[in-house]
Design a protein around this nucleic acid. Structure first.
Lengths: 126, 126
DNA sequence: AGGCGATATGTTCCGTCAGACATATCGACT
DNA sequence: AGTCGATATGTCTGACGGAACATATCGCCT
């Protein structure tokens, strides 16, 4: 049985205001920071300039009631960054919403994938 | 009791390939064409230039196994456009996925909305 | 035959955004 | 004190995308 070649990626974007939205990019960055302990490393890992990663963190920290990322400068290993409790909660909620959405949308997405001209593919970008 | 001020809009974007994705923009355009019977009118209605609306239709028609929009030129009222059966199906599946996704994500989205700094709003843009 | 209104298509221009560079700053550790 | 590695910030420039403008084309109707 030829498994379905993973239909289409479902991207979820939560638009809170004209100025701020939370989508896959910021979510992945948060996850990267949690795992690497560094904004720069997280950015590099997803092929993003430090400046861009930093500005995303800025907007995230500004958008919520409390910062999502705690940053520290200097020190033995130069410094670093980590998710705050708020950061963990926000990321968890986003992932939860994303997972649920992808699950319930699966049927429709598969139907659509069967209607597209060329076979859908999947890379690990964005 | 103060009703929740509509948390955040949930935007669903289905990425079929690096070159083609189906999101709210194209879906709304399809809907507009179905209702107005014209690419130009649908475009105007959503504040989009005719050129842009036309190019979106082009990409939609190219991406699927059959055209989603049937176009006619000339004639009594100049011409027009309408959804094909394929167009109806694609739009229906997208709306279905969108609705289901928004429904199951509701809880998480509301939780997130409670964590944002300023009250989320909702305009009818994009 | 001429008009009308919509589709079809090209060109030009400009604002925005992202990437590339360049520094500055911080603080534990050697 | 000096090093190191990460955060913090500014400037500049090139690419991309969209808006504006300009036509061309089509075919029913008067």
């Amino acid at each position: 049985m030829t498994q379905d070649p993973s239909p289409a990626r479902v991207r979820l974007r939560l638009v809170f205001s004209p100025d701020f939205a939370l989508g896959p990019g910021k979510a992945d960055l948060l996850e990267g920071i949690a795992e690497t302990g560094s904004i720069a490393a997280a950015g590099r890992r997803m092929g993003m300039s430090y400046k861009r990663a930093w500005s995303l963190v800025e907007s995230l920290n500004a958008a919520f009631a409390a910062p999502l990322v705690a940053r520290s400068r200097g020190g033995a290993r130069g410094g670093g960054a980590a998710l705050t409790e708020m950061g963990e909660r926000v990321l968890a909620h986003y992932r939860s919403a994303q997972l649920k959405a992808a699950t319930v949308a699966k049927e429709d997405v598969e139907s659509l994938s069967r209607l597209v001209r060329i076979a859908p593919q999947d890379d690990q970008a964005d």
